[in-house]
Design a protein around this nucleic acid. Structure first.
Lengths: 144, 144
DNA sequence: TTATATGCAAACTATTTGCAATGGT
DNA sequence: ACCATTGCAAATAGTTTGCATATAA
């Protein structure tokens, strides 16, 4: 078992959930990845590594990990219908290049705003997300 | 033709696009609505008014209006797969109650942040959206 | 008149589910 | 041994498309 798989193993053990080969592999892909992945992308990557794993198993576990708060699930892009998933290391947001699709992680500019908003509206604020769209420096250089 | 349909008519005429009964009706629903609507919801509402209109026509026109910048298209909720659409009157964001689904519109707290971000990253920032999730005051009162 | 938009049915994509078999604890 | 998880195949939800017909300009 690789080092990364071992990390995944430990996280799952600490969660007190049943550790299967599939769970270890899926979580490993998310931990390894620097950017959010779709279910299909995780599947593709795992097939490359010869882990015969079913797409439905991936979906089931992504739901499971989400409900356990291990990962975050969201739509990256208004035009795509696929969801994306990422391992939660810390609260952050995304800057997305609408031309090449590159994703940068950003810190959170809303800390103060949230408490002010809670006070003003009476809502109990639990979470939020910000997506910022633009053109990365490279794509700005290309015509069209 | 109702007053609201007339407003929709005028908007379409100003855009220099072909004005059909269906376009007028779809745009009217979005203008009337205080909150974002799904394609299915627009369909439901129009059928109630006895406008025999096809769901595929609604989808086609939602895409068309989006591309013209008349409406905004996005996913409201991480768990749902439906997209939502809203008429663009001014730039704003949403506060969503994760229990009852109520949607409140919010102003934009990112104006300054965006220009700072553009400078720092070299990105040309074109758009962004913020979704804030929580419990509305009413839902906070309900146990489980 | 003619190009664009619509209705209808069928296709497609992402995701979910039922059920029998497998595997972790 | 027992129950949670998996594989597989089939179902579903939301959206898109092809083609003949209707309609706005």
């Amino acid at each position: 078992m690789s080092e990364r798989e071992n990390l995944a193993q430990k996280i799952l053990e600490n969660q007190g959930v049943r550790v299967t080969r599939q769970r270890r592999l899926i979580l490993k892909e998310l931990i390894d990845s620097l950017k959010p992945l779709s279910a299909a992308e995780i599947h593709r990557r795992l097939l490359k590594e010869n882990s015969g794993i079913q797409l439905s198993t991936i979906y089931r576990n992504l739901k499971f990990f989400s409900s356990r708060g291990l990962i975050r699930e969201f739509n990256l892009d208004r035009s795509r219908k696929e969801k994306f998933y990422e391992f939660i290391e810390s609260h952050h947001h995304h800057l997305i290049c609408t031309s090449c699709g590159e994703i940068k992680c950003l810190g959170c500019p809303l800390e103060d705003y949230e408490s002010e908003l809670a006070e003003r509206t009476g809502y109990q604020i639990n979470d939020h997300n910000i997506k910022i769209y633009g053109l990365c420096p490279e794509c700005q250089l290309e015509d069209i």
